[in-house]
């Protein structure tokens, strides 16, 4: 009797101890979409978010066409019967909480704020998806390529990252670290994201101006990138480059952004 109860208890505890790989994974966030697509076994990832197919935002828009998309709503995700749902730590929180109440396992992944976060996110998601080996392989490749890209600089040309609404990102952000790794000096300095007043940009006179490519459809927020001051800066000396989908998420694709930017720096030197 006692032995039988013990066996039952052990059997019940077994799956919890060595969590088996989830067979059906749904991702609801642009950045986890890309990590999941890189990590998943064939057939394991059943849906990615709608944004994953948008070439303006997603570095893997082509790959994402091979997956059905979701729109971040609890109902549609629940109907997919996932074993694991991956969400960002800020978006779709109401949907994530509802899925948790319904008994679905939800993993929240914070957005990457540095290059060091890339291997960390790969590892976290790899473990949750039961794809540790694949994660370690990706991490090793990422670190080798990153080490090769980081060069010692004699002189770092000054650069500014300038986005819609006069927003900029400093050294303590993923985009800022991309800029540093490519050999630039960021005029915004050691800080996170925030407003860079147009006056401050004009007074700093950066050698390179890195702006975002405009989105389709007009907006007043992006108008600032055509302000006479910005145009004059471009005309006078600042070389310009664009940030793209490689810049947005902490995935191995950031290496592509660093490569492009290093090439750009060599051109203007």
């Amino acid at each position: 009797m006692l032995r039988r109860a013990l066996i039952c208890l052990l059997l019940a505890a077994a799956p919890a101890a060595a969590q088996e790989a989830p067979a059906r994974v749904v991702s609801m966030n642009l950045c986890t979409d890309q990590l999941a697509m890189l990590l998943a076994a064939p057939g394991q990832l059943v849906s990615v978010s709608k944004l994953a197919r948008d070439p303006m935002s997603s570095a893997m828009a082509e790959e994402a066409k091979g997956y059905p998309v979701n729109h971040g709503q609890a109902e549609e995700v629940w109907l997919l019967r996932p074993d694991l749902v991956v969400v960002g730590s800020y978006t779709a929180q109401a949907a994530a909480q509802m899925l948790e109440r319904l008994g679905t396992r939800v993993l929240r992944v914070a957005p990457a704020a540095s290059l060091a976060d890339v291997p960390a996110r790969l590892r976290t998601l790899g473990e949750a998806m039961g794809r540790q080996k694949r994660a370690e392989a990706l991490i090793a490749e990422f670190e080798t390529r990153l080490a090769a890209l980081r060069a010692e600089m004699d002189r770092r040309p000054s650069a500014a990252l300038y986005y819609a609404n006069g927003y900029t990102t400093g050294d303590q952000t993923l985009a800022g670290e991309i800029l540093l790794a490519a050999g630039f000096h960021n005029i915004a300095g050691a800080r996170g994201g925030g407003q860079l007043p147009l006056e401050a940009l004009a007074m700093a006179e950066p050698e390179a101006l890195i702006t975002a490519r405009p989105y389709p459809g007009a907006s007043r927020s992006e108008e600032i990138l055509m302000h006479p001051v910005v145009r004059q800066l471009r005309a006078a000396r600042a070389a310009t480059a664009n940030t793209g989908s490689d810049w947005i998420c902490g995935t191995p694709h950031v290496l592509g952004a660093i490569e492009d930017l290093s090439r750009f720096r060599q051109e203007i030197e």
């Binding site: 819609a164 989105y215 907006s219 006479p228």
Partner: peptide, 25 residues
């Protein structure tokens, strides 16, 4: 309904108004 991701956040500007970063244009 705009395809531009910034458009929705501009509601505040149109309702409250601002003179920031305007040009001679």
């Amino acid at each position: 309904l705009s395809p531009n991701p910034f458009a929705a956040s501009e509601i505040v500007f149109w309702m409250m108004g601002s003179l920031a970063d305007r040009s001679m244009l």
